[in-house]
Simulated assay, not measured.
Amino acid sequence: MLSVGILKVVTFQVVLVSNVHRTFILINYGDIAETEQIWLAGYNTADSVNSFTIPVTSAPELSSSSNINVNGRSSFHVDGSANLPTNFLASGDGEIVNPTADDGSSDVIFLQQPFKYFGRTYNRIFVNNNGHLTFTEPLSAYNPSLDSGRDIIAPLWTRLDNRRGGTISYREDKSSAVLAQATAAVKRYFPSIPFAATSAFVATWDSVPYYNGGGVRHTIIFDFQ
């Protein structure tokens, strides 16, 4: 009897929003398929002083989790400043596509506007195929561990394989439409912090399959940004 694979799709997005003084992470989750692979969602700093793991027990629960009372959305203030009080962003001009490679990464991306991350300021970033962003060097690791001695943002850290399909792309967007959308989101979730975005770095994993190791019948695909 012919075995037919089951196509499972997950959808999520990560946006780094900043102006000269303040920086935020917005993570949006749509439908998230169950997987038997190891996975993790959160962020960490190199010294692990600032670390957060989204507290769910299964990947599909990300779609209903929130730290801001909006199902499927989490938002974090990450510039490290003291005493400071559902939808995807559309594709835009200048989208750059990562090479297809097992455990691959982008080339170094030099940011037009530096990004402050818990007291450190970075002017470059890497988009890694296995679902995370790093600042000092590319990272091929697919077994998730936030306590890794590096600054990392991991909207969905697991093993992916863009050789089998999908697209991983990124851009730094300063268009008025995107900045207005990002500013509105930050103001909604952090109303006591004066903020107007001047840059948004958007990374998108579009229909990228999980790595199947050559022996898994199910094909599981996810989109995130």
Rank of each mutant, 00 (worst) to 15 (best):
L2S: 14
V4N: 06
G5D: 06
K8H: 12
V9Q: 08
L16D: 02
S18Q: 08
H21T: 12
F24L: 03
I32A: 12
E34G: 02
I38M: 08
W39I: 01
G42C: 01
Y43A: 05
Y43R: 07
V49G: 03
F52W: 07
T57A: 08
S58T: 15
E61F: 01
E61C: 00
L62A: 03
L62G: 09
S64D: 13
S66M: 09
R73A: 07
S75H: 11
F76L: 05
D79V: 06
D79A: 09
S81T: 11
P85H: 06
L89G: 00
D93H: 05
G94C: 07
I96A: 09
V97H: 14
N98R: 12
G104Y: 10
S105A: 12
S105F: 07
S105G: 10
D107L: 13
V108E: 14
I109C: 04
F115V: 06
K116Q: 11
Y122R: 00
Y122D: 01
R124T: 11
R124E: 10
V127K: 07
T134G: 02
T134D: 02
S140K: 15
N143P: 00
S145P: 06
L146C: 00
T158V: 03
T158Q: 00
S169L: 09
E172M: 05
S175P: 02
T183E: 00
A184T: 10
V186A: 10
F190P: 12
A196M: 12
A196E: 15
A196Y: 08
S199R: 07
A200C: 11
A200G: 00
T204Q: 13
S207V: 11
V208C: 02
N212M: 08
G213Q: 11
G215T: 12
Q225N: 12
